[in-house]
Each structure stands twice: as structure tokens, then as C-alpha cells.
Amino acid sequence: MLTRRNLTALAAAAVVAPAVAHAPVASAKTAKGGVADPLRDLIVINSLGGLEDPNKANLDADAPLSKRVIDDAVASGLTAMNITLGYVSGDAEPFETSVRGVVSADKMVREHSDRLTKALTAADIRRAKADGKIALIYGFQNAAQMGTQVDRVDLFADLGVRVVQLTYNPQNQLGGGSMAAATLPLTPFGREVVERLNARRVIVDLSHSGQQTCLDTARASKAPICISHTGCRALNDVPRNKTDEELRLVADKGGYVGIYFMPFLADRQITGDDVCAHIEHAIKVCGEDAVGVGTDGGTTGIDDMEGWKKAFADQILHRRAMGVSAPGEQPDRFTFAPDMYGPDQFRILARKLAQRGHPPRRIEKVLGGNFLQYAADVWGG
């Protein structure tokens, strides 16, 4: 399942870094150098992230979660994150793979119940903040596992899945993905699934959808929809980024837009300032109450960067050969901003936004407040 989010781990399969001491990260009360932590009192929510170690080659979903990965996630200031489970792309059987993914996630939460918890409502996220834990939001990045049976929505909702993305990059039985023709509509079955997701108070995610499927779904959904991780096409014209029309419609319907840390610049490597520019454009189009952050990455840094670069390039070429690579992916353009990576990424973002003139209340909304309110509107609690 070659998602961009796990490319760092896939690259690690080709180059396992030697054990090295990584720099200590900020505590919950102070940041580096004893400076006050800008995240101390905030609820920080990553609307699409992960718990991966880019320095390990073992990609088995049932492999134990390393202490370092948990330590880094906690130290990053995260309160909650939407994690990808189950089928995304490839030859695996979608339904069985997705059920196993939920079972594996439940096992992980049980084994690390002192620091992880499962989020079913917005209240669970607030409780995680109070308890010093990270709330994991179970999400899918494809709905191919629904097959032709809309009642599978009920099964996955009962298992605790709270976010369902309708398509990955290719077309599926619900609609068009970002690699398919932009004019492909939401299908009749897709409309059935959206209606059932609404009824079960599951978030409908359109991050990887094609343009027409996104617009159709925003109009058809009785509940506000989510674009958990995207960029702004007005700033960089690639299909994986959303047009102003899509962004505005989602916001006008009460939805949420998360900006990722990979806006796919074709001419150079992205930086933290590029991410800020996409956040600012989204705020201009959607308003400051609809925009947040969905990094599409983890919080653990890379130890052997030079070795990882080569392996990453190989994996991008492999994704192209598999037909799942999104336009804009380049072998020499990392899917993260190197100056805003690792456990301090949210602190760096908060400070960058402050330096660019954004007031504290707006930064609080972008870093998690907006998603929390949106989740409460859809899930309750």
C-alpha cells in the first residue's frame, strides 16, 4: 500500500540508519533553550498523520510501535491525529485488509494505553489533552473496501472508524480520484455511501478526489465534509491540490480543510514558508474558522538523510511504475519541508505563523481548534 504518507518508512526499507543519538525534544512546558512552549495550552490536531519510524525497515502493520516514535509524537505537542488504516491501493483485498487494519490499531492502543487512546467523539480529544495522551482518529484513505455493499459503512462505523476518504488517486466505484479525469462525478453508489456516512456521523473526506467528485460530494452531503490534507491549486497547479472553487464550497457548507506539508512544487524543494503560504491562501478563500493542518507525515526525524534520499527517489519511481504516484511527485522533492520536520514541526509552524503576523487566536484555530469544532459538529461530543 504505497501511500505518500509512508514513503519515509518505505525508503527506510532500503537504508536502515545506524543507531545514532537524536537531539532531545522540547518538554510539554518549555521548548528548546528554555523558551516558553507555544503549544503548552493548545489542542494540536493533525488531520492526517502517522506513527512511523523512517529509520526502520520493518513495515509490518503488526510490528511493535517503537518507544521513540511514541516519545516523539508526545513531545511534538500533538493532542490527536487522524491515522490511515486498512486498504489504500495495490493488489491486497480491500475489505479484509481494512478490517485487519482496525484490529491492529485497536491492539496498538491497548498495548500503549498509558499514552494512546481511541477517539470516537470530540470529547475524547479534549479528554486526551487533559490526560496527556494522544487521541488516535481511525481513518481510511479509500472507500474501495465498501465493495458494492453500503451496509459496510455500518460495520466500519461500529468498529470505530471516524473518517472515510471516498477515493485514493485512481478512480473507484464511488467516483474519480485526483489521477483520474477531473470531470468524473460522484457515482450513484458513491451517493449511497455518502448518505450512510452522514447517517452514522462519519466524516466524509475528499482529499484525494478529483474535482467534480469533490464538488458533487460537497453538494450532496447533508453533513459538512472534510479535505483532511491538501494544498491550494491557485499557488501550485497540480491535481492533488484543491481549486478555490472546491475550497470555498467546502467552507461554505461548514466543512474543514487541512493543509499538508507537501504542496508539490515542481521547481524546487518546499520549505516551511511554502506551507505557511498555502495556509494563508486557504484562510483567504475559506476564512480562518475552516482551515487546519494535515501534514501527511509523522513526527520522527530521519537519522541518515543522505542514504534516505537515494532510497526515497527509488520509491517515487516505484510508485510511478505502480500507477499510484500523484502528479507533482518528484524523486528529488521530499514530501515534507526539511526545515519543519521532526518533533518540533508544530512549534516551528506556530512561530512562523506568528512571525508572519497571525494573531494567537488564529494560530490556535489552525493548529487544532478548527478541526475540534468541525469534529464536534459531525461526531457530537
Rank of each mutant, 00 (worst) to 15 (best):
M1N: 11
A9S: 14
A11C: 11
A12R: 10
A13K: 15
A17I: 13
V20N: 05
H22D: 09
P24A: 15
K29V: 13
G33K: 13
D37N: 15
D37W: 03
D41R: 15
L42F: 10
I43D: 04
V44F: 13
I45F: 06
S47D: 00
K56F: 01
D62V: 08
A63E: 12
L78M: 11
I83R: 06
G86F: 11
G90L: 03
D91I: 08
G101Y: 11
V103P: 03
S104Y: 00
R110Q: 14
E111I: 05
D114K: 12
D114V: 04
L116N: 04
L120F: 05
T121P: 06
A122D: 03
D124S: 09
I125K: 10
L136M: 06
L136A: 09
F140P: 06
Q141M: 08
A143N: 04
A144E: 06
M146G: 04
T148W: 07
Q149Y: 10
R152G: 03
L155P: 02
G160H: 09
V163P: 01
Q171Y: 02
L174Y: 05
M179Q: 11
P185D: 01
G190R: 08
R191N: 00
R196T: 07
R196F: 08
L197D: 05
N198A: 01
R200S: 09
I203C: 15
L206T: 13
G210N: 00
Q211K: 12
T217R: 10
R219V: 12
A220G: 01
H229Y: 06
H229C: 03
C232H: 08
A234F: 02
L235F: 14
N236T: 11
V238R: 01
K242L: 12
T243G: 14
L249K: 07
D252K: 12
G254T: 09
I259T: 10
R268D: 02
Q269A: 04
T271L: 12
H278Y: 14
H281I: 07
G287W: 08
D289A: 14
G292L: 10
T295W: 06
G297V: 06
T300V: 13
E306A: 15
K309W: 03
A313M: 00
D314T: 11
L317I: 06
A321W: 00
M322F: 07
S325F: 00
P327T: 10
G328M: 00
F336Q: 00
D339I: 12
F346V: 02
R351E: 15
R356K: 13
R356E: 08
H358K: 15
P360K: 05
R362S: 10
E364A: 15
L367M: 11
L372W: 03
D377R: 14
V378W: 14
